[in-house]
């Protein structure tokens, strides 16, 4: 898999490259700012882009803006945005109308090397990877005014969070040490409680859940 990295911290850029190459990814370019990133994407047409949000020259949100641009111009390229801090607004902007081929993770998630590589592969194959922290913000925000999310069981809320992160039923089952069938039961319970339509694709499911959570607040 061909990857372009954008990260202005040299050490972290090297660490990322190493981690990817050891995992069988092919790093075709490593950019230090948003302009370099856009240039590298044009030049290499990679399968996956991994970018930091805050980069030179203004150290504001140029990485995010570059990601949104690539997403609208080249929807076939998978993008994972890394950041020191995650927030709801950026997650919604990145998802847009399509939760496929997109990831938004805390930078420190790269330390769990195996899980991080899995997230990258899932996104590159058309899936979604939303950071647990931003999902937690969404769920707590949806539940704070009362509402249907509060009526879910603890286990159902756990499953809901994993669904929002973009996990498959198989993964959730493995994680919770349950059969996939049990997970399907949980998900249909959640669908009923929240009044969501049943969807087959994991990434469509993400979009439906996120939209529900974002709209349920207050």
């Amino acid at each position: 898999m061909r990857v372009v990295i954008a990260e202005d911290e040299t050490l972290l850029r090297q660490g990322l490259r190493l981690l990817l190459e050891e995992g069988g990814f092919e790093v075709v370019a490593a950019a230090g700012d948003a302009d370099e990133l856009l240039g590298a994407v044009d030049a290499h047409g990679p399968d996956l882009v991994i970018t930091d949000i805050r980069m030179p020259p203004s150290h504001s949100d140029e990485g995010l803006r570059a990601a949104l641009r690539i997403r609208s111009e080249r929807p076939d390229i998978a993008i994972v945005v890394l950041s020191q801090y995650v927030q709801r607004r950026y997650a919604l902007e990145l998802l847009g109308g399509e939760a496929s081929r997109i990831g938004y993770l805390l930078k420190q998630r790269i330390a769990d090397v195996g899980a991080f590589r899995d997230d990258l592969r899932r996104v590159a194959e058309g899936g979604t990877a939303l950071d647990p922290e931003v999902v937690a913000v969404l769920i707590s925000r949806a539940g704070r005014g009362g509402g249907d999310v509060r009526r879910l069981t603890r286990r159902q809320r756990e499953v809901l969070a994993y669904m929002a992160e973009g996990r498959s039923n198989a993964w959730i089952g493995q994680r919770l040490v349950l059969t996939e069938k049990a997970i399907v039961q949980h998900t249909s319970g959640i669908y009923d409680a929240l009044g969501l339509p049943v969807t087959a694709d994991d990434h469509r499911r993400v979009l439906a859940v996120i939209r529900y959570l974002d709209g349920a607040a207050d």
């Binding site: 949000i53 805050r54 150290h59 504001s60 949100d61 995010l64 950041s83 020191q84 801090y85 927030q87 709801r88 607004r89 913000v137 707590s140 925000r141 704070r144």
Partner: peptide, 21 residues
Amino acid sequence: PSALVERGLVLAAEDLVDRMP
């Protein structure tokens, strides 16, 4: 706060509001 640096007051305030219990 990174939102303040990146996007200004309204977005930073929105992030604070998002995290209110």
